[in-house]
Design a protein around this nucleic acid. Structure first.
Lengths: 220, 220
DNA sequence: CAAATATTCAATTAACTTATTGAATAGTTG
DNA sequence: CAACTATTCAATAAGTTAATTGAATATTTG
């Protein structure tokens, strides 16, 4: 095979793989599967898509080896094929946040509205957690927390936060986290906490980003 | 703005950015610009595209802030907008090499044909360079070498290698590198060296990959 | 300032991608 | 094994993307 044919082929293969990621619905699926495996129905519900459409997008991801699946009773459960998939998405996401002014504006506006404008980074978190009066709050659904969470975090799912807010101590400072920088649970948590007079901010990154770099804890 | 609208927007913006990368010609351009800036004409020549087509692809990359440009006399010279662009491409490339069996087969076949089947990784290189009888050979064009190279490498551009091969010492072991894992200069160098009775292998990665992680040397 | 050169633009055609709809399939449960 | 359920498939229409061609633009050089 000559040089040009070889290059055409490697770049074409690479482009097809990237093409499989280059769709808003599929990115949302990848982001969600970063939490752990999900059935087609669950993915459809969480991303507000029809089941048929979700299934089609999953086929595209499967054909490019970005996801794998297993049957579990009546359900087919999908998961990311390997860590590199989420890693790549994380990098692309960072590239977007750095180079697209529009993205920056969108996120800043949203967070201003939620009082979560000054997020804490993973590096900040390591420092802040040494302090006795900082509490790390995992606001994801209970199942996700149980499947793995940042060590020392406590779990109050976002939809229980309002009713369980009396459990929290006003003298403490809260750092809320959820599924990633594009997940809004943490922003909603900060909005509520600040409104009720707590000191709170959100973690910039989410659980999957922590997991790529540090050890996790689970409930077993 | 509500949650769903926010999500739709961030994923759509991200997808558009990724879409701008998801094309074989544009990946080849990004890979090439990893070496340093280039005029439209140079890019067209090195990628075997028409100038008009090259220009159109460059417009797409520019609109997504993946490349920047400056005028230099009659020429417009393009460069990557920042390190994260090459970083993302590197990650996606790794993802492809890991998860696409077809990619693996393609590269293995090509290297078998060039006798460069067992490449040395960047980590291996650091160890091997401690040995007195290993020579690191940069086979990129002279200008690229001068703009930056791996410390202690010597430059013999691939198209001069045949005529200058008598300069090389047969008792030494050679490691050839070029622009990256998809660049074939190093494979061609190894093919020639092995045929002439030298001990030679290629570096898996290329200069831009080194540059993202380690200091470089230039001619000034 | 005219000629030359490098690059971009515009229009066209062919190919590909997405969402929607409704039907088909393949497992599981009673 | 019949009924049920979760998922996939197939067909369609609307929208998007890519390569080609030739013309237009903008800058430099003589």
């Amino acid at each position: 095979m000559d040089k040009r044919a070889f290059k055409d082929k490697v770049y074409t293969l690479s482009a097809k793989l990237i093409q499989a990621m280059a769709n808003p619905r599929r990115l949302e699926i990848i982001d969600l599967l970063g939490q752990g495996e999900r059935s087609v129905e669950e993915i459809a519900r969480e991303t507000a898509m029809s089941v048929a459409n979700t299934s089609q997008h999953l086929q595209v991801l499967k054909q490019s080896n970005l996801v794998q699946l297993r049957r579990d009773g009546n359900f087919i459960r999908y998961r990311l094929a390997n860590d590199k998939v989420y890693q790549s998405w994380q990098d692309l996401r960072m590239m977007g946040m750095e180079s697209l002014a529009e993205m920056d504006r969108l996120i800043t506006d949203f967070r201003r509205q939620k009082n979560s404008l000054h997020p804490v980074t993973l590096e900040d978190l390591l420092v802040r957690m040494r302090s006795k009066n900082t509490i790390l709050l995992d606001v994801r659904p209970e199942g996700e927390f149980q499947a793995g969470h940042i060590p020392r975090a406590i779990n109050v799912p976002i939809d229980q936060l309002a009713s369980r807010i009396r459990e929290l101590d006003k003298s403490m400072e809260y750092i809320a986290y959820c599924r990633g920088p594009f997940c809004v649970f943490a922003d909603e948590a900060v909005e509520l906490l600040v409104k009720k007079g707590f000191k709170a901010s959100r973690l910039e990154e989410g659980f999957p980003d922590w997991k790529l770099r540090f050890p996790v804890e689970d409930v077993s």
